[in-house]
């Protein structure tokens, strides 16, 4: 009932400055154009969960694809679009319906991924999350829940954050999502706030992935400050944060 009309405004592609890595993941011809959505700002959505190496990603991809977008530097460029879209819905029931529509587009995770080690801890519904880095250093996200409304939240987060650089994921706060005007029970940091729980969990995993990647690069397994003739260099999140706070309270990556 909510799938048919195609509307392919392409503002997404126009938003951003050129990036040396223009394309995120693979596009999958078999899935393209199979099912377009009518959501106002997200045009040619393609299956967020594209692909390849892992067969689970092919499972029942609802076949919408993010246009292989270029990305902004800081806040994920898709977030304002999502906010605009949600702001246009004045009735709460329409927000719920929209979330359920997004939920329907999110490919379910296979049972092998719906395991405790992928759980997002929270009280009311189960959420599973997988995060990987692709070959270009961009974040690949998969999420699922046993609650449909929560799946909707997951779908929105995946839509906004999948394919972005780690820094973008780390820069988003639950407060940034407040403008969506749904699901912020008890404030942005409440334990029943799905946005917050899933987002924080994503960020934790992104940090781990980035740390692992950097460790491989540097062959340095320890978080520390490296003191050398070139000066002091931060290694590890805590040390980096200390340096950054000193350098500039508001500096971002």
């Amino acid at each position: 009932m909510y799938t048919s009309t195609a509307s392919t405004i392409s503002s997404m592609k126009t938003t951003i400055s050129p990036s040396p890595n223009p394309i995120k993941k693979e596009t999958f011809p078999p899935f393209e154009n199979t099912k377009r959505l009518s959501f106002s700002s997200f045009k040619s959505l393609k299956c967020i969960h594209s692909p390849p190496s892992n067969p689970k990603r092919l499972t029942s991809c609802a076949a919408f694809t993010l246009s292989p977008s270029l990305t902004t530097k800081l806040v994920p460029s898709k977030l304002p679009h999502l906010i605009t879209e949600f702001e246009s819905l004045s009735q709460p029931i329409d927000l719920v319906k929209r979330l359920l529509q997004y939920a329907a587009l999110l490919a379910p995770l296979p049972d092998s991924s719906r395991v405790d080690s992928n759980r997002v801890m929270g009280c009311t519904a189960q959420v599973w999350l997988e995060v990987e880095l692709d070959e270009y250093g961009k974040i690949m996200l998969w999420a699922d829940s046993d609650s449909e409304i929560t799946r909707g939240f997951c779908a929105c987060l995946v839509l906004v954050l999948d394919g972005t650089p780690p820094e973008e994921v780390l820069n988003v706060t639950a407060e940034d999502l407040a403008a969506l005007n749904i699901g912020l029970h008890g404030g942005a940091r409440s334990r029943v706030n799905t946005w917050h729980n899933v987002l924080v969990s994503m960020q934790k995993r992104v940090r781990i992935l980035v740390a692992e990647r950097d460790r491989k690069k540097d062959f340095d397994p320890f978080s520390s400050l490296i003191v050398s003739s070139d000066g002091v260099q931060a290694k590890g999140r805590y040390a980096e944060a200390q340096i950054r706070i000193k350098a500039n309270k508001f500096s971002s990556y």
């Binding site: 719920v96 046993d146 929560t150």
Partner: peptide, 23 residues
């Protein structure tokens, strides 16, 4: 086939009925 959290959310938002969901 309906998650209790979805039920609780909808009851609250659409009908003003406060119930608990979870464990």
């Amino acid at each position: 086939n309906i998650h209790p959290t979805d039920i609780a959310t909808f009851l609250d938002q659409q009908h003003g009925v406060a119930i608990r969901s979870g464990h």
